[in-house]
Structures are given as C-alpha cells and as structure tokens.
C-alpha cells in the first residue's frame, strides 16, 4: 500500500454528506483571464470552487465566455457565495438566485460583510441569514469571525460547515489567532475550514496542522507572481499539513537538546 492511495482513499473531507479528496477550496476571482483561472484551479486540485453572483451585462459582450463553461459544474462542486452582501436580506436573495442558476444546488457559502475597509463579517446579520437559509433547505458554509461562541451558534442552527477567518480577506496576513481557531476546531462537530487571510503555503500548512478540516483561499493564489505554481504549492501545503496533523507532531521540549545519533562509538572517543 503506498501513501498517496491511503491518503486519497480514507482521509476525505465530508461536507453536507458528500466526500471530497481535496481539503483545499479555492475562489475564482482576481485572475488575469479565464484561462489562468482554469489552469490555477486544475493545479490546486480543488474540487469545491467558489463563485460570485453578479448582474449580467446587458447589451454588451453578448458572446463573452461564461465562468461556468470554464469550470463545468459536472466536474467541480460550484459553491456560490454572497461576497459583497452587507445585509442578511441581500445574502438570502443572492443565494436564492444562485440556487436557481445552479439547478437547485443547495451548498452555498454565506458571508455577510460589515464594512468595505475590513470586509470583516457582520455576525448578527450572518446568523440571521443562516437561520433563514437553513430553514429554506440550503446547506450553509458560513464565513465567520474567529469567536468560538458565535461559531458554535452557527453549528447549532444547522450550518453544514463553519469558516472562521485567519485574518482579513485578501490581506495575506496569515493566521493571527491560532488559539481561537483551535478552540473552534476542538468544540465543533461540523467541518471547520479556515477562510480568508492565507498568504503563503506555510500559512495553509499551519491551518491544517491545527486540525482544521480544510482551507479556502483565493488571493494567495491569484495574486502570487505565478498563480498556477502557487496553486500547486497550496495543494502540497494543505496535504502536508493534514498528514502532519494526522501523524501527530513530537512534543516540544524547550531548551532540551536530544541527539538523534548514537552517543557511543565515536571514532575520536577518549577514555
């Protein structure tokens, strides 16, 4: 039995009853063009891909390609999001449209933002929207602050996954509060995915080593100098972090060195 088979076969991310081999979820924004989007997402190995919902251009670009032609829903789980929504009402409206757009597909990413400067989640509105969406049969993956109490409330009201931020959306600042993320991971039963703030591959590994179930990112890949290569780096980073978490790290022993080589048999040993 070789290791990759073992990884692919038994360690899967289960969200809303469906299993995924990849624990990396990716966004589709900020790429140069659809070709780069497609190549980066292929390199990432992601199976769940998030998209935004926006007004169609009227009377222009009639023949322009459609994102869903590049990312066919038959191949990827398309996760519509509510990026840009600042009220529960707008988020719910957007996701009702998304469900119609995607032929009844009910897995969605809820995010309700508080202000344009921080893009920090507005948690009262997020909770209100989650309640409505769950009641309407949506399977809600909720972007949230790293407050363990609010994260637990999202789980209790029936969200399919909870997605606390590592740091501000698009900031690339990495994981600012691993302690809060750890409390959330320890306390919740539903999958916990770190969403937002990942800047580089080591951030993704650290998130996975904390024991979270997955990582969602966009800018760290799209705004890398070489997005396709960074997408591959993120794939490896998430896999490495997951394997490291499952393997269980050695205990830290501050200031206690411990040689790995035998202390006997040195050629220059003196009596």
């Amino acid at each position: 039995m070789n290791a990759p088979e073992r990884i692919a076969g038994t360690d899967t991310l289960v969200v809303a009853g469906r299993s995924y081999g990849s624990r990396l979820l990716v966004g589709t924004g900020k790429y140069r063009d659809f070709d780069e989007t497609r190549r980066a997402i292929e390199a990432s190995g992601a199976e769940i891909v998030t998209v935004a919902i926006r007004r169609t251009n009227i009377g222009q670009n009639a023949g322009e390609p459609n994102l869903l032609d590049v990312l066919p829903p038959a191949r990827y789980t398309i996760l519509p999001n509510t990026a840009g929504c600042y009220t529960a009402q707008d988020a719910v409206r957007t996701l009702r449209l998304a469900r119609e757009l995607l032929d009844g597909h009910s897995l969605v990413k809820l995010e309700v933002l508080a202000d344009a400067d921080t893009l920090f989640p507005n948690m009262p509105e997020t909770l209100a929207a989650a309640k409505t969406l769950v009641a309407e049969g949506f399977q809600v993956m909720a972007y949230c602050s790293d407050d363990p109490i609010l994260a637990k409330q999202l789980e209790d009201m029936g969200c399919a996954a909870v997605m606390p931020l590592a740091s501000l959306i698009g900031s690339g600042m990495g994981i600012l509060n691993p302690w809060n993320l750890q409390i959330i991971i320890d306390r919740l039963e539903v999958p916990v995915l770190v969403d937002a703030g990942i800047g580089t591959a080591s951030d993704a590994t650290i998130a996975m080593e904390l024991g979270c179930d997955g990582v969602l990112m966009n800018t760290a890949i799209a705004k890398a100098r070489d997005p396709v290569r960074m997408a591959h780096a993120m794939k490896l980073a998430v896999e490495a972090g997951r394997e490291s978490f499952l393997a269980g790290r050695m205990p830290k022993k501050p200031y206690q060195a411990s040689a790995s080589s035998p202390t006997e048999g040195l050629i220059a040993a003196k009596s």
Binding site: R54, L67, G84, L119, N218
Partner: peptide, 8 residues
C-alpha cells in the same frame, strides 16, 4: 444574474 469569478 450570472456566476462570475470571486472568492471572498
């Protein structure tokens, strides 16, 4: 509306 590139 339609689906467009976007993440967070």
């Amino acid at each position: 509306v339609m689906a467009v590139g976007g993440g967070e």
